[in-house]
Structures are given as structure tokens and as C-alpha cells.
Simulated assay, not measured.
Amino acid sequence: MPHTLKVLADRLANDPDMGEPSALPGILTVMIDGDLFEDCPALAVATFVGPTGSRSST
């Protein structure tokens, strides 16, 4: 699982708006399919889109 999180962190560094809006303002959720990474369960990772994020919370 550490490799999966590193890959996700690298992708988020390049695309901080990656993910779907959640019910909470400023929070995006990225789903990781467990089938894509060996020995990793399916994960839902929530990220905070701060003032530098380009998505607006409307």
C-alpha cells in the first residue's frame, strides 16, 4: 500500500483538483480501485483543496 499512496501523492502534486467533490466544502475524494495495485484494498482518499486550488466551492 505505501507504493499506492506514493503514486497518488505524485498525481495530486501535478493535479491538485483530481477527485470528486464531497459533501464537505473544499474536500475532494479520490477513489483507488484495489484491482489496479497488487496487495492494496480499494481506498477512498479525501484531500483538502486550499486557497491555491483552482476549484471553487459553490
Rank of each mutant, 00 (worst) to 15 (best):
K6C: 09
I27T: 03
M18I: 00
L5H: 04
P16G: 01
T29F: 00
L5G: 04
L8N: 03
I32F: 02
R11H: 07
A42T: 15
R11S: 08
T52I: 13
N14R: 15
P16H: 03
L8W: 05
C40I: 04
R11L: 08
V7K: 14
V49N: 08
V49W: 02
P25K: 07
T47Q: 07
R55I: 08
L5Q: 07
A13Q: 10
T58L: 12
G34C: 08
V30A: 02
A13F: 09
P2Q: 15
H3F: 12
A9P: 02
D33V: 07
R11D: 07
C40Y: 02
S54W: 05
D10I: 06
G34R: 07
G26P: 02
R55Y: 07
I32A: 01
G53W: 03
S56F: 10
R11Q: 11
A23P: 00
P51E: 10
K6N: 12
A46C: 11
K6V: 11
L12K: 02
G53E: 00
M31H: 13
V45S: 01
E38C: 03
G26T: 05
I27C: 04
N14T: 10
P25N: 09
S22I: 04
G50P: 04
I32E: 00
F37G: 03
A46L: 10
G50Q: 07
G19E: 00
G34T: 09
A23Y: 00
L43C: 03
G26W: 03
V45Q: 01
V49E: 08
V7F: 09
S22T: 15
A42N: 11
M18H: 09
M31T: 13
G26Y: 01
D10Q: 12
L5T: 04
A9D: 06
C40G: 06
E38F: 05
H3T: 12
P25E: 06
L12Q: 01
R11V: 02
T58V: 14
P21N: 05
D10K: 10
A44T: 12
D15L: 08
T29N: 04
D17S: 14
P21C: 02
V30P: 00
T52C: 10
P16V: 03
D35G: 13
D39H: 11
V7W: 10
C40M: 05
V30C: 02
V30Y: 00
L24A: 13
A42C: 10
P2A: 11
L12A: 01
F48N: 07
L8F: 04
S54N: 12
P51G: 11
A46M: 14
T29S: 03
L36C: 07
L24G: 00
G26S: 06
P25W: 05
T29L: 03
V49S: 11
F37Q: 05
L5F: 06
P51F: 03
E38A: 10
D33H: 09
F37C: 04
A23R: 04
T29M: 04
S57N: 14
M18C: 06
E20Y: 05
G50V: 06
D15N: 15
A44Q: 13
P21D: 05
I32S: 00
I32T: 02
M1C: 13
T47L: 05
A46E: 15
V49Y: 00
D17A: 14
S56E: 11
G26H: 03
A46Q: 15
